[in-house]
Design a protein around this nucleic acid. Structure first.
Length: 238
DNA sequence: AATGCGGGGAA
DNA sequence: TTCCCAGCATT
C-alpha cells in the first residue's frame, strides 16, 4: 500500500468538503441507535434514494425498538415490502427482541461497541462500524463499497476493492486514517461514504470536482496553468 | 472463496 | 443489457 503520509491533509480536505456539500439525509439528524440501525439495514445493497421513503414510513409505524419487538413478523415484513432482501426485516425483528429482552422493561440496551454489535443478527463488519460511529460516535472504522473504492483509489491504487483478500488491507487503511476522536469519526465516516457516492463513483471518478485529488494516487495530475507556449523546436528538428 | 438474496436506477 | 447499490449469512 502507498504511504499514509497524506492522511491528515486528506481528512481535512474531505471533511471541509462534506460540511459544504454533504446531503441532508434523514438518518444524519439522529443519534438514536434504533433509527440508525433501521437506516443501515435498509441501506444494505440499496440506494439512498429508494430508502428515504421507507425509512420515514417505517419509523412512523414503529417509532421505537419496542414497537418492532412487539409487532407480528408479518407486520414488519409488510413495512418492508418492496425493498427486497427480506432477511433484513426478519433480522431487524429478531434483533429488536434480543435488545429489548435482555434490557429491563423500560429501556432497550444496545451494544455500543462494534465487536458487540457484530453479534446481532444481520449486523456484519460494516454495519457494526456504522452503528458504533454514527449512533454512539465511537472511534470505529467502516468499509462499505464506497469506502473501499475511495481508499483504494487514494491510498492503494493497486488494490482491487472488489477482491475479498484486498478488503483486509482496506480495513487496515480505514483504521489507520481514523481521526482521533469519536465525534470526528462520525463526520469522517460519513464524508468517506459521501465522497464515494457523489464524486468518486464506481463508473466515473469525477476527479475535477474532487476535494482530495491533490493527495490521491489515482487522480490525474492537475492541469498545469501556464502561459501560452513559446514556439519551440523539437531536438530532432532542423 | 462462492453463492443466494430484490428490486430499481443509470450508463 | 450490464453494472451497481451504506452487505450479510450460508455453504
Amino acid at each position: 500500500m502507498r504511504s499514509l503520509t497524506h492522511a491528515p491533509v486528506f481528512r481535512r480536505k474531505l471533511h471541509a468538503w462534506f460540511r459544504a456539500n454533504g446531503r441532508d439525509l434523514p438518518w444524519r439528524k439522529t443519534r438514536d441507535p434504533y433509527a440508525v440501525l433501521v437506516s443501515e439495514l435498509m441501506l444494505q445493497q440499496t440506494q439512498v434514494s429508494r430508502v428515504v421513503d421507507y425509512y420515514a414510513r417505517f419509523l412512523d409505524r414503529f417509532p421505537t425498538v419496542h414497537d418492532v419487538a412487539r409487532a407480528r413478523p408479518a407486520h414488519v415484513r409488510e413495512a418492508w415490502a418492496g425493498l427486497g432482501y427480506y432477511a433484513r426485516a426478519r433480522n431487524l425483528h429478531a434483533l429488536a427482541r434480543t435488545v429489548t429482552d435482555r434490557g429491563r422493561a423500560a429501556g432497550a440496551t444496545f451494544p455500543r461497541t462494534a465487536a458487540d454489535l457484530r453479534e446481532l443478527p444481520g449486523v456484519g463488519a460494516y454495519t457494526a462500524g456504522a452503528v458504533a460511529s454514527f449512533a454512539f460516535e465511537q472511534r470505529a472504522a467502516l468499509v462499505d463499497t464506497n469506502v473501499a473504492r475511495v481508499l483504494a483509489r487514494v491510498f492503494a491504487p493497486r488494490l482491487d476493492p472488489k477482491r475479498a483478500r484486498d478488503q483486509r488491507t482496506l480495513w487496515t487503511i480505514a483504521e489507520a486514517i481514523l481521526p482521533r476522536t469519536g465525534r470526528a469519526t462520525w463526520t469522517h465516516n460519513q464524508s468517506l461514504m459521501e465522497l464515494g457516492a457523489l464524486i468518486c463513483t464506481a463508473r466515473v471518478a469525477r476527479c475535477a470536482a474532487c476535494p482530495v485529488r491533490s493527495v490521491c494516487a489515482s487522480a490525474p495530475a492537475a492541469p498545469v496553468h501556464r502561459a501560452p507556449a513559446r514556439p519551440r523546436r523539437s531536438p530532432a528538428a532542423g
